[in-house]
Computed example of a mutant assay.
Amino acid sequence: MRVIGESLFGAVLEGLGRVSLMPSKRIFLPPSVREKSRDQFYQLKQLNTPVAEFEAAFTSLSRFALELVASEERRCLEFKKKLRTGLKLRVARSMTREHGRLVDAAVHLEIIMHEEEDRMRGFKRSQDDQEDGRRHRGSNIQQSHENELLVERNTQLENKVNELQQSLNSAHTEKEATFVMYHMNTITELTNQHSKASELNLEAEARVSENKIKLHETIQKFSQRDLEAKDLIAKLNELQGWIKMYEEQAHETIGVTKNQKVEFEQTLFKLKGLEGIIEELQNMSGQFEKQRVQLAGVNSKLTQDLATYESKLNDLNHLSSQN
């Protein structure tokens, strides 16, 4: 997924930022611009941008995704998610739910992180300088000692050669010649020993160079593993932050579930009350039906009596008209 880099923050502050600086004017933005700004907010990441500039871009773009920042708490959660990893892990420990305080804490922690990084770089540079110094001093001391031995042996050989040369020049007898030959053999033997010593010295230098290369490779491997370990620790801390956030969301969900359960129980209680009322109404309806039947019987009887009385009245009227 493409994320917003440092160049986009300038565009946001230069473009959308001008809209927020003129609250008295209603500026119409086409739907395509709103949708693009909304996508930019979804993809917004801090990366290497300072917290102050990132917060300005966050505030400008959040107006196009109000459902993500509907409350102060959700605004804080969204702001934390978009911070870079190292800073996010430190800010995640903050339990504040006010956006302004959260931004101030992030700025303060960013300054502390920069200071720690500067100290770590200085400490590592000092260790590297000390290590290089120890290596150079050890190598120089060893080479200096070997050179001194070679110079001493060369001096001894030169002295022997000079002595033998003088003895050869002054030798006049066979005894002296034999003595000279003996010393010449000694010189030859010393020369051979010197050659062997030189070969051993070269071999030792080759081994030292090979050990230096192996040491350098070992240091590189150790540095690589150290970086991998730091990366794993950072990922572990990030996962712990996510787990903590999910736990908070789970607690909130449990609270909402409990409220819904209470509301359901209240509704169930009301429903049971309504069922009792319905049952009472049904009983009253049965009584009303019985009374209606009784009243119908009474009404029928009264109708019959009325018909009888009317018949008698008609008979009386008929008799009265005949008289």
Rank of each mutant, 00 (worst) to 15 (best):
N259K: 10
P50I: 00
A296P: 01
T96V: 05
R119V: 01
H145A: 13
T257S: 14
I27Q: 07
L268E: 08
R74L: 12
S139V: 02
M95C: 13
E72K: 02
A229M: 11
Q294L: 14
L295S: 06
L29I: 01
I243Q: 04
K36G: 08
G138I: 07
Y246R: 14
I254D: 14
E248H: 12
F28Q: 09
S311L: 09
E289L: 02
N162V: 03
M22D: 15
H136I: 12
R134A: 11
V19S: 09
Q165G: 05
L29W: 00
N140T: 14
L227A: 15
G17K: 02
A171M: 03
R97D: 02
T303D: 11
R26D: 15
Q291A: 11
I111F: 10
L190N: 02
F269V: 09
D104K: 08
Y182Q: 13
V103G: 00
R292A: 14
S20T: 12
G297D: 11
V107C: 01
Q220H: 04
K196Q: 12
L239K: 08
L268H: 12
V69W: 00
E53D: 14
G138N: 10
T96D: 00
Q142V: 09
M284R: 14
T178V: 12
K290D: 07
E247D: 11
E217K: 10
G133Q: 10
Q46N: 04
S20N: 13
V262D: 11
Q165M: 08
A177E: 03
V208E: 10
V12R: 00
L302H: 02
A307Y: 08
D305N: 10
F28D: 08
N154C: 10
Q294K: 15
I4Y: 00
L77I: 05
G241Y: 01
K221H: 07
L66Q: 06
L61K: 00
L61P: 01
R121Y: 09
A229E: 08
F9E: 00
S32F: 06
G241H: 01
V298T: 10
L313A: 09
T178W: 09
L164R: 03
M245R: 13
I111N: 13
Q322V: 11
M113F: 04
S195I: 14
V161Y: 06
S223H: 15
A204E: 07
E158L: 10
H172C: 13
A65N: 00
E67P: 02
F58L: 02
Q130H: 07
F79E: 00
L268R: 11
Q322G: 08
V3E: 10
R38C: 05
L271M: 06
R74P: 02
T49R: 00
K175W: 01
K81C: 03
S223C: 09
V51E: 00
D128N: 04
K301L: 07
V208A: 12
H99E: 03
N154E: 10
S320H: 06
V180F: 09
Q156L: 12
L16H: 05
K196R: 08
D104G: 07
N169A: 12
E176G: 01
Q282I: 06
G122E: 15
R137L: 15
E146Y: 02
L157T: 05
I27F: 08
E152T: 06
A206C: 04
G15S: 13
Q46M: 07
L232N: 04
K175L: 03
K80H: 04
I111W: 09
G5C: 03
S209P: 00
E176T: 02
L232E: 05
E115L: 03
E199G: 04
S300K: 05
E115R: 06
V180Y: 03
S32H: 06
S170H: 09
H172T: 15
